[in-house]
């Protein structure tokens, strides 16, 4: 069985995993809306910037993005200024995962907005609403229900992808248990890790299912 020290280590690893996933999904959802609106915008600059953002962050591995932020930026900074500095690995993880989640969620949000019937925008405009008012009061609220399922999906992906942070000196759930497994030679720690991942993803699934039903209340 687990010693108290091991138990706490696994607990702390789980917290690291959860923190990164939750920070990333929250930032990703907020900035995802911004990037999605940029993609839908008639403004050429906003459109191109958003396109480029999504192109880069979806088109390169998350692990590479993590390395660039954690390893490459301090080196670039050193070359440019001659001053050394280190990025806190937790901050680097927050930033990399948030930037990456933003790109994926932006596409999800854009698709959800485009799926709303065009008559809604016309009706809003015919009532005198500006584009902004129509978006915030009419169009975007109608996407919430359609966003819940893909958002839950993204959160589950993020939760599992957090295991990548073991490469930048962070002890997440998987690395913690792996260390124990190699130190003791017992495979049971992998079972513990699997159980915790499954426990967390089950909660996400149940919560998001409930949320979807609740938000769909206006549909017959």
């Amino acid at each position: 069985m687990l010693t108290e020290i091991q138990l706490w280590a696994i607990f702390n690893g789980t917290i690291v995993t959860l923190q990164i996933a939750i920070v990333a999904i929250v930032f990703g959802a907020v900035f995802g809306v911004v990037v999605a609106l940029g993609r839908l915008s008639k403004n050429k600059v906003a459109n191109a910037l958003s396109w480029f953002y999504i192109w880069f962050f979806r088109g390169t591995p998350l692990l590479l993005q993590l390395f660039m932020i954690f390893y490459a930026i301090p080196i670039i900074y050193l070359d440019a200024t001659g001053i050394t500095f280190e990025i806190n690995p937790m901050i680097a993880a927050f930033v990399a995962f948030s930037l990456n989640a933003t790109a994926y969620l932006a596409e999800i949000i854009r698709a959800a907005i485009e799926s709303i019937d065009g008559g809604q925008m016309e009706a809003a405009k015919a009532l005198g609403m500006s584009y902004r008012q129509a978006m915030t009061k009419i169009i975007i609220p109608q996407t919430y229900k359609r966003l819940v399922a893909p958002l839950g999906n993204e959160l589950i992906m993020l939760l599992k992808d957090t295991s990548l942070v073991s490469t930048i000196a962070l002890f997440d759930l998987l690395r913690t248990t792996k260390t124990m497994a190699s130190a003791t030679g017992s495979w049971i720690y992998y079972i513990y890790a699997a159980a915790i991942y499954l426990f967390l993803t089950t909660i996400i699934q149940v919560v998001f299912d409930k949320m979807e039903k609740k938000l769909g209340i206006y549909e017959r």
Binding site: A123, A124, A126, G128, Q133, E219
Partner: peptide
């Protein structure tokens, strides 16, 4: 100019009352 559309285009996420009040409230 008030406009009534062929497909109604009511706002499905709002109640009947909110459909009627939303434009006066925000515009």
């Amino acid at each position: 100019l008030g406009m009534v559309f062929q497909n109604f285009n009511l706002f499905p996420h709002l109640t009947v009352l909110d459909n009627v009040t939303i434009a006066p409230l925000i515009v």
